[in-house]
């Protein structure tokens, strides 16, 4: 890699990208202005739409934070973390990540940017996955004295991808590597995916994607009695599938495709509200339920309601 990717050249090229002194002065001036505005009038008058949205999320994060804080009353406790659902206020700026779909399209590929090998530009049909599947990265459950975790959803489908992050193999294209990872995984955890054969799972997605109508994983490692991080060496991503019918989604995406095909400014006015409407509908009443069974066989459940805020943020409200 070192022979091919010239790090020094990369650094040299990037070091040229700097803001001009004038631009820095403009930023500084705007910050002063915002600071004065805050001091003068601590109300919403100067908030931009985006900042208002961020603050709404911050409030959700606050609720989340205290919700989890109260749950840690006894020796048995757990919390959920994901890139969009977090137990800390610091995560308030996170957005729900739906950039990856099961057909391998990234958000970038959809918009014509950053196309990767093997990816095709998104067609009208491709919008179906974009709107029907929602992706939550790096899901994990942390707690003490946990024996098993069960994750369910009230949506049409819930899937998860499992990535052995501590390996350097190309996990997505190497069957042997997947088998190795599975074997390693199975030695430590059990997963209830008996309703599908492995071939069916592989057919469903180009990379390892396990459909799971409520998947269960048992922690086979010996509890230290201290905090136990479930799946410490693995990154789990959860993908939710909307329960709207294919024909319903097809009708919406056809409408979107027609508007976008017009490719003129007037289409924008129609497109944005339509996309927002679809996004809202897709996640309407969607919910993830996480149930933990502790070593003493007691259970605890936390529910994640999916909430769509503004036209660019999707986040969670986590309830005990």
């Amino acid at each position: 890699m070192a022979d091919i990717f010239d790090v020094n050249q990369y650094k040299s090229e990037n070091s040229r990208f700097t803001l001009t002194p004038d631009q820095k002065r403009m930023i500084t001036a705007e910050m002063y202005q915002a600071c004065h505005a805050m001091k003068k009038n601590n109300k919403k008058t100067f908030w931009t739409k985006g900042i208002a949205a961020a603050l709404v999320i911050a409030l959700v994060g606050t609720v989340t934070y205290f919700g989890f804080g109260n749950s840690n009353k006894s020796d048995n406790w757990f919390s959920i973390k994901a890139s969009a659902a977090s137990a800390t206020q610091d995560e308030a700026n996170q957005t729900f990540n739906n950039e990856l779909t099961t057909n391998g399209h990234s958000m970038g590929a959809m918009s014509g940017f950053f196309m990767e090998d093997g990816e095709e530009p998104l067609t009208k049909d491709g919008y179906k996955d974009y709107f029907a599947l929602y992706h939550m990265e790096d899901f994990s459950v942390t707690g003490a004295n946990i024996k098993a975790v069960k994750v369910e959803s009230n949506t049409k489908g819930i899937y998860f991808t499992l990535t052995p992050s501590d390996k350097t193999v190309d996990f997505y294209s190497d069957t042997a590597s997947i088998d190795d990872a599975l074997m390693d995984y199975k030695e430590r955890y059990t997963i209830d995916y008996s309703q599908y054969t492995f071939d069916e799972l592989r057919e469903h997605a180009p990379y390892l994607l396990w459909p799971c109508d409520g998947f269960v994983y048992d922690n086979k490692t010996v509890s230290t009695g201290e905090e136990t991080n479930i799946l410490p060496n693995y990154s789990i991503d959860i993908i939710l599938e909307s329960d709207h019918s294919d024909s319903e989604i097809a009708a919406w995406t056809k409408e979107i495709g027609e508007i976008k095909d017009l490719n003129r400014p007037s289409g924008r006015e129609k497109y944005e509200p339509l996309e927002e409407k679809i996004q809202k509908k897709m996640l309407e009443n969607a919910r993830i339920s996480v149930t933990v069974t502790y070593e003493d066989n007691s259970t605890e459940t936390q529910v994640i309601d999916l909430v769509y805020i503004e036209n660019r943020f999707i986040t969670f409200d986590i309830k005990n």
Partner: peptide, 8 residues
């Protein structure tokens, strides 16, 4: 806001 393993 990622796990270290995800970054790796």
């Amino acid at each position: 806001g990622l796990s270290q393993s995800a970054v790796k």
